[in-house]
Simulated assay, not measured.
Amino acid sequence: MSRWFAPGTWWYALPLLLMAGPFMWVLPSVGAGSAIAGLAVLYFHRDPDRETPAAGYVSPADGTVSVVREEDGRLRVGVFMNVYHVHVNRAPTADAVQETTHVPGAHRPAFSKESDRNERLHVDFPDYRVTLIAGAFARRIHPYVEAGDTVERGERIGHISFGSRVDVLFPPSVTREDLVVERGDSVRAGETVLADP
């Protein structure tokens, strides 16, 4: 489905844009700042369509691969989203959502090791998990799916307002040999294949 912005964007952007008009007459610098901030919010929450490949586990986020590690015999890949990246997140492959779990926590920079203790949302599928992790400035994780939903590869599953990281904990059957990315690579949500088992 085509849309311009992530759901709820106008709750952030509209007050700033509405304030800009009156302030332009009284305090032009404040009005201009408010308008710029409103436009920045719209840009941050943009939601372009993507061309999803027919196979493989695609990236759940736009950004840079910042984590590649093994945990209890499973591979984790994390994608750090900078402020200029699209922050709408997508399903790595087609599957049914088993559970979504919100975990409260800190708001450390999403690129740091300390971010492992940040606020997060786990989206559990039968064989793998996607985790949306709030960053230093991110204060809201917005899930689009819940238990019982079925998603297609590359389908939107949520977004994080103002920052963060998204991790994929792959099934045990996915190994490092299946990875087609490495730390430092740039990826696009729903388009870039992370692993092709």
Rank of each mutant, 00 (worst) to 15 (best):
A61P: 11
A61I: 12
A61T: 11
A61S: 13
A61K: 00
D62A: 06
D62K: 09
G63Q: 04
T64G: 14
T64C: 13
V65T: 12
V65A: 13
S66M: 07
S66Q: 13
S66C: 14
V67K: 10
V67C: 02
V67S: 05
V67W: 03
V67H: 05
V67F: 07
V68K: 09
V68T: 13
R69I: 10
R69E: 15
R69W: 03
E71S: 12
E71L: 10
E71T: 15
E71Y: 09
D72Y: 05
D72H: 12
G73N: 12
G73Q: 07
G73C: 10
G73R: 10
R74C: 03
R74K: 12
L75C: 09
L75K: 00
L75I: 14
R76W: 06
R76P: 01
V77E: 05
V77R: 03
G78V: 03
G78L: 01
V79A: 01
V79P: 02
V79F: 00
V79H: 00
V79S: 00
F80L: 15
M81A: 03
M81P: 04
M81D: 03
M81E: 01
N82S: 14
N82V: 07
N82M: 05
N82I: 05
Y84G: 04
Y84N: 07
Y84S: 11
Y84R: 14
H85C: 09
H85F: 00
H85Y: 01
V86A: 03
V86N: 05
H87N: 04
H87M: 01
H87L: 01
V88D: 02
V88T: 13
V88G: 00
V88H: 00
N89H: 13
N89P: 02
R90K: 12
R90T: 09
R90C: 05
R90Y: 04
A91E: 04
A91Y: 07
A91L: 08
A91R: 02
A91N: 06
P92V: 08
P92T: 04
P92E: 06
P92M: 07
P92N: 10
T93H: 00
T93S: 07
A94L: 12
A94I: 06
A94F: 08
A94T: 08
D95P: 00
D95Q: 10
D95N: 11
D95H: 09
D95V: 02
A96K: 15
A96V: 15
A96M: 14
A96C: 14
V97F: 03
Q98A: 10
Q98I: 10
Q98C: 04
E99Y: 07
E99Q: 14
E99D: 13
T100K: 11
T100V: 15
T100S: 04
T100D: 07
T101F: 08
T101E: 14
T101I: 12
H102T: 05
